[in-house]
Computed example of a mutant assay.
Amino acid sequence: MRTLGVTTNLHVDDIAAAEGFWAGFLGLRQQEFSLGWVARYTDPDTGAHVQLVTGDATAPEDSAVTVRTDDVDAAYAEARAAGYEIVHPLTTESWGVRRFFVRAPGGTVVNVAQHRD
Rank of each mutant, 00 (worst) to 15 (best):
G47C: 09
S94F: 12
Q51C: 14
G36N: 11
R99P: 04
T108I: 14
V97K: 00
V6E: 02
A81V: 06
N9L: 12
D13R: 12
P105L: 12
F100L: 12
T8A: 03
P105D: 11
A77G: 09
F21S: 07
T42K: 11
A81Y: 00
G36Y: 08
G96S: 04
W37Y: 13
G27K: 09
D45E: 15
Y41H: 13
D71G: 07
R80Y: 03
A64I: 10
E93S: 05
P105A: 15
A104M: 07
T46I: 08
F100Y: 12
A23I: 11
D117H: 13
A16L: 09
A82S: 07
P89K: 06
F100V: 08
A23S: 13
F21D: 03
E61P: 01
A82R: 06
R2Q: 05
R80F: 05
A18D: 05
A74I: 04
L90K: 09
I86W: 01
V87Y: 02
Y76Q: 00
D13Q: 12
V112W: 03
T46S: 15
A23Q: 13
R99S: 14
R98N: 00
S34T: 15
W37T: 15
V50S: 00
R80C: 08
L52P: 01
V65W: 01
A113R: 02
Q114M: 04
V53L: 15
A74G: 11
L26G: 02
G27I: 08
V87C: 02
E61H: 01
F101G: 02
R116W: 10
H49S: 15
V112G: 03
R80Q: 14
H88W: 03
L4G: 08
G96C: 04
G107N: 08
Q30Y: 06
G5I: 04
D13L: 09
V102K: 00
E61Y: 06
F33E: 12
L10I: 13
Q51T: 13
L10T: 05
L35A: 14
V112Y: 00
R29K: 15
D62H: 09
G5S: 10
W95K: 02
E93M: 04
N111S: 11
V72M: 11
R98D: 00
T108Y: 09
R40S: 13
E93N: 10
H11F: 09
A81I: 03
H115Y: 15
V102Q: 04
F33L: 11
T58L: 12
A104S: 14
T91I: 04
W37V: 15
F21Q: 03
W37K: 08
